[in-house]
Design a protein around this nucleic acid. Sequence first.
DNA 1: TTGCGATACGGACCCACGGTCCGTATCTTC
DNA 2: GAAGATACGGACCGTGGGTCCGTATCGCAA
Lengths: 203, 203
Amino acid sequence: MTAERKPRKDAVRNRAAVFAAADALFAQCRSPEEVTMADIATAAGVGKATLFRAFGDRTGLIRALYEARLAPVRAAIEEGPEPLGPATPPLERVPALLDAVLCFKLDNRHLALALEGSGADSPYRADHYDHWHALVRDLLRRLPGPPDSDFTAHALLAATRADLVAYLAGDKGVPREELRAQLAGFTAAVLDARTRRGTAVEG
Amino acid sequence: MTAERKPRKDAVRNRAAVFAAADALFAQCRSPEEVTMADIATAAGVGKATLFRAFGDRTGLIRALYEARLAPVRAAIEEGPEPLGPATPPLERVPALLDAVLCFKLDNRHLALALEGSGADSPYRADHYDHWHALVRDLLRRLPGPPDSDFTAHALLAATRADLVAYLAGDKGVPREELRAQLAGFTAAVLDARTRRGTAVEG
DNA sequence: TTGCGATACGGACCCACGGTCCGTATCTTC
DNA sequence: GAAGATACGGACCGTGGGTCCGTATCGCAA
């Protein structure tokens, strides 16, 4: 077993400072690209190298922020009560999941934008996307319907893309509840049509 | 009237050279980010400034390439025969439009990726997106169904996002025809559910 | 053909930003 | 409190988008 010895006290303090500073800066600025690493280091009262030592690179920092915010949602899904928790039947859980994703991206627009639009790597290569997709796909498979659960899961999740959400909620000024209702309606329509169109269950 | 005098001969020749070089380079490389402006200039046998003079900036160049490829599709939609042309009834034209978009993005993955993922500006602020969205939304409105055509149009188009298409067709190796069939199935399901769920027509 | 203003060329140059290096400071442990 | 390990920080580097300006080319007219 790799017995990782505990890190130095100042290291954890600095890590936390960077974390907080980055969170605040990303929340303030319109577009995530106008926050530079140097900005974050300065705001945290820390040298640039400290920042990179703690998080590897820009993507690593953003991912860390994102994962921290996401943790409670994950917990609610994995072991929480209905309608998000695992005991919920698929027909209710899929809409609940999508609604949770939407709400999360509404509440954390800046981070979601920064992560999904981190240039080089498409959001589809991120591991957390696979997680969501597998979850939705498997729920769809447990429902009667045509055997295209994989694509349908992608398509449903695409409706919650960070930049789309930011565009509608931000630029277009669509209110939160209205967006939620529209996504719910769309999801319901898709599920409804699927259960109606075919009764085969995928292996 | 702004009487724009005609450009010099070498200017148009260079512009064409840059155009061709950029097209070739983007087509060859895996990710559009590994093609630099200097690369394009070199490949075109031209100085960097010439390139920027002709197209403004990176986004301008990519957009010009994209629009050029898109022109035939646009023409087919605006004045072509069925099922893409304006004479087609909405119920058939919406799937046809989405299929055309999908095929276009499959055939021009590199450009679509370069444009949608051009970092700063979300794809939703591009004017061509508004065009597609308005088209789909207006068709949906002409159909009986719930009054959320605007969002539904966004959601349907989101299923054809360039990075999703590239991910499925490229990384996952989903064959072209299978992808088309899946998108068609998804679209049909959405339309089917809409016409079934409500009979109101939006004003 | 030649002369001349207008236009375009090109590559050296600039700047911003992500990421690294290394001499120095701080922590931990004995 | 001394020694070794660990972390600090800001100067530094490479890269890539975008610009500047002295020079070459073009178009036109005489």
